[in-house]
Amino acid sequence: MSNVNANLNMKTNVNKSKEEPTVGAKSIFVDANRKQIATRRRIDWLLRLLFLVATSIGVLALMALLIDIVSNGIARVQPELFNNFPSRRASEAGMKSAIVGSLYMLAIMAPLSFLLGVGAAIYLEEYAKKNRLTRIIQLNISTLAGVPSIVYGILGLTLFVRELHLGRSLLSGAFTMTLLVLPIIIVSAQEAIRAVPKARRDASFALGATKWQTVSRSVLPSSISGILTGVILAMSRAIGETAPLVMIGALTFVAFLPNGPMDSFTVMPIQIYNWVSRPQASFQELAAAGIIVLLVTLLIMNFSAILLRNKYNKHI
C-alpha cells in the first residue's frame, strides 16, 4: 500500500517540476517519496542481514566440523596412534603405515609433478606459438581440472596397475596422483610465470642470453616461489585425496612399512576411511584422531605456502 502511494507521489512530483522547473530554496529535500526511500532502505538492511547470515553459515560449518572432530578425536591422539600399525582392536590400532605411506607417496609425487607441471607451464607461457594446438592443450588442461578424481582412479587402475604391470604399488599410486594434480600445478605455475615482468626477459635477451638461458636464469628464479606455492597447494590436495587410491587398490589394512616403490601401501585418508566405515564408536574416535593428524599436516603445508606467497609478493 505504502509503495503505491509513494509511486503516485513520485509521479505528481515529476509532473509538477516539469511544469515549473524552478525549485524554490529550502524545498529541495522535502521529497514526497521519503516513504519509498525508507522502504528501500529497510529492504537494503534486511538483505544485508540475509547476506551476512548466508556468509556466516560457511564459517559456522567449518567451526562445527572442527569442534566435532577435535572433541571426538583429541583423546586418541596418543603416541600409539603414530607408533602402532592398524589392528582389529581399536585400543591398539595406529596409523604408522598410513603416515609413512603418505610421506613416501609425497616423496615420489612431488618432484615428478613439479618437473612435469612446471615444464608444461614454461612451454605454454614461453615457447608455445599462439596456434590451434596450444589452444587445445590449454583448453584440455582446464577441462582435466574438472574431471572427477575417481575417473583418474579408473585410469590408474587400467594403465598403471594392469597394462604397465606395476600392480597395486606405491608407484602406481604416485603416478595416478601425479596425473591428478598436474592440471592444478600447470595453471598456477603459468600464473606465476606470467607475473614476471616482460622487462626482465628483455634485459636478459639484451645481454645476449638465449631463450633457454633467459627462461632458466631470469624467468624461473623470479617466479619460483609462486610456482612452489602452487605445488605445495597441489600436494596438500593430493595428501587428502582418497577415491583414486581406493580405485587402484591401496590397501586399507597394512601392517608393515613399504620397503620400495613396488610395495603395496596405504595412506592417511584411506586409513581414516577404513575406520569411518566401521560402526563401533571406538573406531569412530580413532577416525577423528586420524583426521586431526591429517588436518594438522595440511595446515602445516598450507602455512608454508602462505609464507612462500608473502615472500613472493615482496619480491615481484
Partner: peptide, 11 residues
Amino acid sequence: AGVPTIVYGYF
C-alpha cells in the same frame, strides 16, 4: 575448500 572429502564424510 581445502578440507579433504573424507573429512567431510566423517562430518
